[in-house]
Amino acid sequence: MLAPTHLIAGQAAFIAVSLSVGHAPTLPEAWLAAAAALLPDLDMRHGVVGRLFPWLSEPLEYRFGHRTLTHSLLVCVALALLLWPLLPHGIWLALVAGYASHPVADMMTPAGVEWFWPARWRCVLPGNERFRMRAMGWGELIFAALLGAATIPLLGMAQAKPGTGSVIAAAIGDIGAARARYDAEKGTNRWMLRLEGRDNLTHADVSGDYPIIGPWQASGFLIDTPAGPQSVCRTGDCGWYADSAVAVKQEALATTTRHINTPHTSPAALSAALVEMQAMGETYLIGSLTARGIAPQAPTVSVSGDTVSLTYASPEVLEAWGHRALRDLLLTVQVRHAPDEPVPAIELNQATGSVIPAEIRPWLHEHDRISRHR
């Protein structure tokens, strides 16, 4: 096939794959996919790419021949595995989809490709040679035109967030796959969980769309519901059981973290330090501290003895802690806000941070009363 047809096929393959996995393609990624679709022709020294890299194309063509090594499934898989840990998800998707589109398109020509190289079998699509396309023929021209026309609605569907989501993920509805996608792409967008499930205690139906607060345990989610935060997974350990779950990417946002490591403070001082961050966006507390008399609030606040663990807890939980002394704070404060907005540092007011323990406060009040009557 000609280079223009491969350019169109590379973009179409990238957009179709993006739609299937729920990735919103960008214009630079589409250009990259088109360029990657030309790379397999490195094994042809007179081709568009071969002329740019003659030092590589000539030995490849001489040693292996055209439509062999660089057009094989082996190279496509090797490229995908090699680039997976090195590149952002969208760029990786563009390179792999664009590259793989080339040998698939070349299978539609009479000669086919050695897809299973080093085996010498020539793979073709379709099996009947009368329906394969010859280079520069009317068949290739019509194929390129149809492919280009189909790309436009596919692009619109792939970019239609949050309504479209991932076609494959929606068909499977596996919460493990939803969590894997969320873990791979979290941090730059708001997320929503499209859930079909039931309450583990009452068995009531809880299906609906819920904002994702964060991850929960190994393969679940912490979501925001009208009744407060709720844990969702596929076991009885969570508040809700997920029969089907799809993670859907929504509008862009930025995530900024600040850290609190202090030996002591008070709920009032901590709340005051978080006011500016709360004004910027959704703010959560993650980590641990030591305090007495704190009541657990599942699933975000758990208590074991005097140790309090916070898992994406809202700063509002501090209001119920009264004047208790908070000690040994190791907290991460996460705020999700509009992109490009600077987030201030956290400054604890140590003048109000020290708290008299509740156990001795009545004795101090009694001492003051006696002193006044002397």
Results as ranks from 00 to 15, higher is better:
178 A>P: 07
228 G>M: 12
216 W>T: 03
15 I>G: 02
142 I>F: 10
106 D>Q: 08
269 A>G: 09
183 D>T: 09
91 I>W: 14
163 G>I: 08
6 H>D: 05
18 S>P: 07
113 V>T: 09
148 G>C: 08
259 H>V: 13
290 T>C: 01
15 I>Y: 01
65 G>S: 09
33 A>S: 14
114 E>M: 15
345 A>F: 05
354 S>W: 14
213 I>A: 03
135 A>W: 02
124 V>C: 10
56 L>Y: 06
87 L>D: 05
370 I>K: 14
162 P>S: 11
242 A>I: 04
64 F>G: 06
309 S>K: 13
48 V>M: 12
68 T>W: 00
349 N>L: 02
151 T>V: 07
365 H>Q: 12
84 W>V: 07
311 T>M: 12
291 A>S: 15
195 L>A: 10
227 A>D: 14
4 P>L: 09
357 P>V: 09
275 V>C: 00
100 A>I: 08
321 W>K: 00
298 A>N: 06
166 S>Y: 04
61 E>K: 01
7 L>D: 02
29 E>I: 07
173 G>R: 01
220 G>M: 05
94 A>G: 06
113 V>S: 01
75 V>T: 13
254 A>P: 08
291 A>K: 10
30 A>I: 15
338 A>H: 11
180 A>M: 11
296 P>V: 08
59 P>F: 03
349 N>W: 00
190 R>C: 02
284 Y>V: 05
34 A>P: 04
71 H>S: 10
62 Y>M: 02
177 A>N: 08
125 L>K: 08
352 T>Y: 04
198 R>C: 04
163 G>Y: 11
247 A>H: 09
153 P>S: 04
1 M>D: 09
127 G>P: 12
199 D>K: 05
295 A>I: 09
256 T>G: 04
251 E>M: 11
2 L>V: 13
344 P>W: 06
41 D>W: 02
358 A>M: 12
355 V>N: 01
252 A>G: 05
104 V>I: 15
362 P>H: 09
58 E>W: 10
151 T>W: 00
92 W>F: 03
30 A>E: 06
289 L>H: 09
255 T>W: 00
221 F>T: 01
114 E>K: 12
31 W>F: 15
202 T>K: 06
67 R>W: 00
256 T>R: 07
74 L>Q: 08
365 H>N: 13
261 N>T: 13
123 C>G: 04
347 E>M: 12
20 S>W: 11
350 Q>H: 14
310 L>R: 06
113 V>D: 00
262 T>L: 15
245 A>D: 07
172 I>C: 00
145 A>E: 04
200 N>I: 03
321 W>D: 01
77 V>R: 00
229 P>L: 04
7 L>G: 03
326 L>A: 06
41 D>F: 01
171 A>W: 12
265 T>K: 03
212 I>G: 05
248 V>I: 15
87 L>F: 05
119 A>C: 08
168 I>Y: 10
187 G>Q: 06
27 L>M: 09
137 G>C: 11
173 G>E: 06
